[in-house]
């Protein structure tokens, strides 16, 4: 019968129209900005810099190695290395970025900076409402605007942040253990030097001398 296909289609639209009042599955849109869909844990928008502790300048993990600057495909990162050094999370003196700019009007959210960073210093934010009335300066984020605390990182990417913390803690523990062992060895050595034990045979080949 001519028109049968159209009627069949109409039945389908009627089903969907009626269904949209009762079924969440058939009505998937929400009224933004009053209603919001929660972002996914893996979601990424633009990068930010992680710092530990409460002071962003002191706790900044970035050591200004400039790997992200080099690997960034659209070249939206600009880093100037500091002249002096500050201690990092294990206490080792490191350079820090005297200037760290990300131009988010150029950034394409590809996450390659995060992948190549060996210091877990740069991560992806989930904040997407970045509208500004200044097209140039407003979209050029400096290091203060980019710095976000580790707590914030835990809030937006809990699983990933836990993994990162575990890795950093184990690194720190290893570094501390190494430092401790070195200190002990130094202490033992100085003790040895002060009181040479005759029972201990001297090394046959002078490796240290």
């Amino acid at each position: 019968m001519l028109g049968e296909g159209i009627l069949k289609g109409m039945a389908e639209t009627a089903k969907n129209f009626a269904g949209s009042f009762v079924s969440e599955d058939r009505l998937t849109t929400v009224e933004y900005p009053e209603q919001r869909i929660p972002t996914f844990e893996n979601a990424r928008v633009f990068p930010f810099l992680v710092y530990d502790g409460s002071d962003w300048a002191a706790g900044m993990r970035c050591v200004a190695c400039q790997i992200c600057e080099k690997e960034c495909p659209p070249k939206c990162i600009y880093i100037e290395k500091s002249q002096d050094k500050k201690p990092d999370f294990v206490g080792k003196p490191q350079f820090y970025p005297a200037r760290f700019d990300i131009d988010v009007s150029v950034c394409m959210s590809c996450q390659i900076c995060v992948e190549v960073c060996p210091f877990e210093a740069i991560k992806m934010d989930t904040e997407f409402e970045l509208a500004t009335d200044n097209r140039f300066g407003g979209l050029l984020l400096d290091r203060e605007e980019l710095a976000k605390s580790n707590e914030y990182y835990h809030r937006i990417h809990p699983t990933e942040a836990d993994e990162v913390d575990a890795r950093l803690n184990s690194e720190k523990a290893a570094a501390e253990a190494k430092a401790k062992a070195a200190a002990q060895a130094a202490a033992a050595k100085s003790a040895d030097a002060a009181k040479p034990s005759p029972a201990k045979p001297a090394p046959s080949t002078g490796g240290e001398d």
Partner: peptide, 22 residues
Amino acid sequence: FRQREKIVDLFESLTGSRMMCN
């Protein structure tokens, strides 16, 4: 698009982005 949305949500929850998955 309603159906595509579900698939794109899968992409986002895995890769972090809906369309530019990289």
